[in-house]
């Protein structure tokens, strides 16, 4: 029942405010390889949204195109009602991004990285330093704030990247695999910050291939397979009759019933 009520609230809001992200007919090919094959997506505002799919499904390519870091071959992307490619001034001020596989300015310390990012975004210096101090505290990075980012562990890098993405208080936050390679303690910290952030009415869109995580965090999911969106909607709707998102996902991908059979019958047998 709580799900129902939440949906109604979001549905009401949908009528007034534009969706957080609207994608129409988005295509991207690299040479012969089609990475994203004409997807349509409408992600409601104020939700915790998971973009799930196996490796190579096109999640990173999609997020890069939505955030303006990669030019699509075809298609339209709107964030909070503004076209990403025609109206970058409006869009770039409203989004925060944590990409996967791109570096940070690693020869700055954690604190310097935040000071740099905030000022580059045009925020007043005193405000940047205040926010940076709080973010470093909450993300448990205060002890390492003067260490160079190049010496950070994977979890610490994700956390400082998240801090840099949150610094200007964006409406929509895009995170590509924010929990990949992150230890459980850091993951819990990241989770706490993100939950607090969405509770304020902001939108988080994150990609992952860990279904349990998506199921426990998100109230809205989009399933991506081989460059296409297979399903999108509230979590309960996508999950349907299946006992878990994992099995619903395997069903969608068509990977159910694949068995090792007898080919590995020696494994675990008499030595």
């Amino acid at each position: 029942m709580p799900d129902q009520i939440k949906d109604d609230v979001a549905g009401g809001a949908l009528g007034e405010a534009p969706p957080a992200v609207r994608v129409e007919g988005l295509w991207k090919r690299f040479g012969e390889q089609i990475a994203v094959a004409g997807i349509d997506l409408t992600l409601p505002a104020g939700r915790f949204i998971g973009l799930v799919g196996p490796n190579g499904a096109g999640k990173t390519t999609t997020l890069s195109m939505v955030t303006g870091l990669l030019r699509p071959d075809q298609g339209r992307v709107e964030v909070a009602g503004h076209d990403v490619w025609r109206d970058p001034v409006e869009v770039k001020a409203r989004i925060g991004v944590l990409p996967e596989g791109l570096r940070l300015f690693e020869r700055l310390s954690g604190r310097e990285l935040l000071a740099y990012t905030g000022r580059l975004r045009g925020l007043p210096g005193a405000e940047v330093d205040k926010r940076a101090t709080q973010l470093l505290d909450v993300l448990d990075l205060a002890g390492a704030q003067h260490k160079l980012v190049v010496d950070y562990s994977t979890g610490m890098r994700k956390k400082i990247g998240l801090a840099a993405a949150l610094l200007h208080n964006p409406d929509v936050l895009f995170l590509d695999e924010p929990f990949e390679g992150v230890d459980p303690v850091s993951a819990q910290t990241i989770r706490g910050v993100l939950e607090r952030y969405t509770a304020s009415g902001a939108t988080v869109v994150f990609s992952s291939h860990v279904m349990e995580l998506v199921e426990s965090l998100c109230d809205w999911v989009a399933v991506m397979v081989a460059g296409r969106i297979r399903a999108q909607g509230p979590l309960a709707e996508v999950r349907g009759e299946a006992p878990s998102l994992q099995s619903a996902f395997l069903e969608l991908v068509g990977a159910h019933g694949r068995d090792a059979g007898e080919s590995l019958d020696w494994l675990g047998g008499a030595r």
């Binding site: 000071a115 580059l120 210096g125 330093d129 101090t133």
Partner: peptide, 26 residues
């Protein structure tokens, strides 16, 4: 007193500071 005291306001000073730190550190 303020950890960011060496970072000036605005893009020009910020980018200059970052560039010069990279000369020393990268």
């Amino acid at each position: 007193p303020g950890p960011g005291r060496l970072w000036p306001e605005g893009r020009t000073g910020t980018v200059m500071t970052r560039s010069l730190r990279y000369v020393a550190r990268d």
